[in-house]
């Protein structure tokens, strides 16, 4: 089972929820993997402090043109919608940083003059934090395209056990890539106007996705009718209301997990987990 933890707004506590849910599930005896797909700013390792066993570079395939074989017919240039390859009178120029790796130019080249080479965009770490499996993608600084790296991270997640996917914030392509194929989607929000506004954007973005969804309200200071009504409107249940707690904030600032710092957290995540199971089960019927 793959559970994605996502948030329209950044800084709502997405990583906190993902990490603590992992720790709860490990403690409950399950086989669990944490997959950090927030590849632009991966932070899970700061809290889980995993032992990294392997690191591999990953990239996207970009065209390499053999000038001897090329007959300058121009087919590749007219196909490419990203302007990553352009044919001039006497040569072909490529702009690898604009290439999305569709492979079209190499496929259609009548002269078979285009080969594909990998252009590295980031790395993927694998390891363990105790019994917890750990996978994390990290985009190279200056690289613009994170979805290909996110896909590579997801490919490495195991098929059995539970995988918790820490998704990038926002509602555009990186976030959608990370949550698209999960079995359950957990949306984290906070009770502020910004938090609610971005939660609604997120609810709109994911409403067409087939998997069941639940909301976690973080840093709650008493009842928040507006957020509850919003979730009602989109038919998504609120599975957990995590109270604002200065101890948690302090622990977080030092890189400790709430799990380590605050004893009451066990019940919060136990309730959250049974909520997810109930919900996932109901939708499976």
């Amino acid at each position: 089972m793959k559970i994605a933890v996502a948030s329209g707004k950044g800084g709502t506590g997405k990583t906190t929820v993902a990490v603590n849910l992992c720790l709860f599930l490990v403690d409950a005896g399950l086989q669990v993997t944490y997959a950090d797909c927030d590849v632009e700013e991966p932070d899970g390792h700061l809290f889980l402090k995993p032992e990294i066993v392997t690191r591999r570079r990953t990239g996207i395939p970009v065209p390499h043109v053999d000038p001897e074989a090329c007959n300058l017919c121009g087919e590749c240039g007219s196909l490419c919608r990203y302007s990553a390859i352009v044919v001039l009178k006497d040569r072909v120029m490529t702009f690898p940083e604009l290439c999305h790796g569709c492979g079209g130019c190499a496929y259609i080249c009548p002269a078979r003059a285009i080969a594909e080479v990998d252009r590295p965009i980031g790395s993927i770490d694998r390891g363990n934090a105790g019994k917890l499996g750990f996978i994390s993608g990290c985009l190279d600084i200056g690289q613009a395209m994170s979805p290909p790296l996110i896909k590579e991270v997801l490919k490495e997640t195991p098929d059995d056990g539970v995988t918790i996917v820490d998704a990038p914030p926002g509602t555009s392509c990186p976030a959608m890539t990370a949550v698209g194929d999960c079995d359950y989607l957990l949306l984290v929000t906070e009770p502020t106007p910004f938090g609610r506004h971005d939660l609604e954007l997120m609810l709109k973005a994911v409403c067409s996705l087939p998997m069941p969804k639940g909301v976690v309200m973080n840093r709650v200071n008493g009842p928040d009718a507006a957020t509850e009504e919003l979730c009602d409107k989109y038919g998504v249940p609120v599975l957990a209301r995590i109270p604002e707690d200065r101890l948690v904030a302090e622990a977080y600032s030092k890189g400790l997990t709430a799990w380590e710092a605050v004893s009451g957290y066990r019940t919060v995540f136990a309730d959250l987990w049974s909520g997810i199971q109930k919900d996932a089960g109901r939708c499976g019927e």
Binding site: E40, L139, G142, A144, M145, P169, G170, P174
Partner: peptide
């Protein structure tokens, strides 16, 4: 600006 490090930030 947008959060993160990817294309909208650049």
């Amino acid at each position: 600006g947008s959060p993160g490090l990817g294309c909208p930030v650049i």
